Simulated scan of single mutants.
Amino acid sequence: MSDDLDPGAVSAALLASLSVLLRRVRHVPVDGGLTMPERTALSQLERSGPTTSSALAREVQITAQAMGATLGALRSRGLVDRRPDPDDRRRVVLTVTDAGRQALKDKRNARVELVAQALTSGAFSPEELEQLAAAAALLERLAQHI
């Protein structure tokens, strides 16, 4: 690293810019879209696989009551299913339905489209687009080292 570059300053600049970018893309409207708590719960459930409501609440660091309300809304829309735990019939596990996966895909696609529109708006030169492509790979590598 160059003597002129302070790792602390680079870190602060990266985190600030990524925070702004993420805040903006999180608010992309999608017809029949998910609220932030619904998207968080559904995404975590998709990643972790079948689990209980209380385990899911612990994973996303919210109260069991708040998770219960969120899951109730997701179930009423057919995005989450409840089934008896095959290992312990007294417990109930939650799974993402095909409709839930599609809702997540729609939200992700809307975000990708928003960023793609910004990239093709003329605000970036071809050289800058190449730099952004390279930066994406570097950011992924950075994430793996944290």
Rank of each mutant, 00 (worst) to 15 (best):
32 G>W: 07
124 F>C: 07
27 H>W: 03
106 D>W: 05
119 L>Y: 06
38 E>Y: 02
33 G>S: 07
62 I>D: 04
53 S>K: 04
36 M>A: 10
29 P>R: 12
116 A>L: 11
42 L>P: 01
113 E>H: 07
26 R>I: 00
33 G>N: 00
22 L>E: 12
80 V>P: 00
24 R>D: 15
67 M>F: 07
53 S>Y: 01
33 G>T: 04
130 E>T: 14
35 T>H: 01
85 D>T: 06
22 L>A: 10
119 L>P: 00
67 M>E: 09
115 V>T: 11
29 P>Q: 13
56 L>N: 05
126 P>M: 06
40 T>Q: 09
59 E>R: 13
30 V>N: 03
86 P>I: 10
49 G>D: 03
66 A>S: 12
65 Q>I: 11
39 R>F: 04
103 A>F: 02
30 V>A: 08
26 R>G: 09
23 R>I: 06
86 P>K: 06
63 T>I: 02
47 R>V: 15
91 R>W: 05
97 T>W: 03
130 E>S: 12
45 L>A: 05
62 I>V: 15
84 P>A: 09
104 L>D: 08
110 A>H: 08
78 G>V: 09
36 M>E: 11
98 D>C: 02
74 L>V: 08
23 R>V: 03
64 A>G: 10
82 R>D: 07
82 R>T: 11
73 A>L: 07
121 S>P: 08
29 P>M: 08
119 L>I: 15
115 V>I: 15
109 N>Q: 14
19 S>Q: 14
104 L>T: 08
83 R>H: 09
75 R>A: 09
57 A>R: 02
96 V>K: 01
53 S>P: 04
35 T>V: 05
131 Q>F: 09
95 T>R: 10
111 R>H: 04
87 D>G: 09
126 P>C: 06
37 P>H: 00
121 S>N: 13
25 V>C: 00
43 S>P: 03
132 L>G: 11
131 Q>H: 14
58 R>N: 05
58 R>S: 08
102 Q>W: 06
63 T>Q: 10
28 V>M: 04
50 P>Y: 01
55 A>M: 05
30 V>R: 03
103 A>V: 04
112 V>P: 03
53 S>L: 13
101 R>E: 15
128 E>W: 06
40 T>I: 12
66 A>G: 01
49 G>A: 00
121 S>R: 12
91 R>S: 10
47 R>T: 15
34 L>F: 07
107 K>H: 13
106 D>P: 00
35 T>A: 14
56 L>T: 00
40 T>V: 15
60 V>Y: 00
96 V>E: 03
123 A>Y: 09
119 L>W: 05
26 R>C: 00
85 D>S: 10
20 V>M: 09
106 D>N: 13
88 D>M: 07
88 D>H: 11
68 G>R: 11
125 S>P: 05
61 Q>T: 09
77 R>Q: 13
80 V>Q: 00
35 T>Y: 01
44 Q>P: 02
103 A>P: 03
107 K>R: 12
88 D>Q: 11
98 D>Q: 12
19 S>T: 15
30 V>D: 02
129 L>Q: 14
103 A>S: 14
132 L>E: 07
81 D>Y: 03
82 R>M: 08
50 P>Q: 05
42 L>G: 01
46 E>N: 11
64 A>R: 12
26 R>N: 12
66 A>Q: 10
102 Q>D: 14
75 R>S: 08
129 L>H: 13
50 P>C: 01
58 R>P: 00
96 V>I: 08
119 L>Q: 10
59 E>I: 03
52 T>F: 00
132 L>N: 11
38 E>H: 04
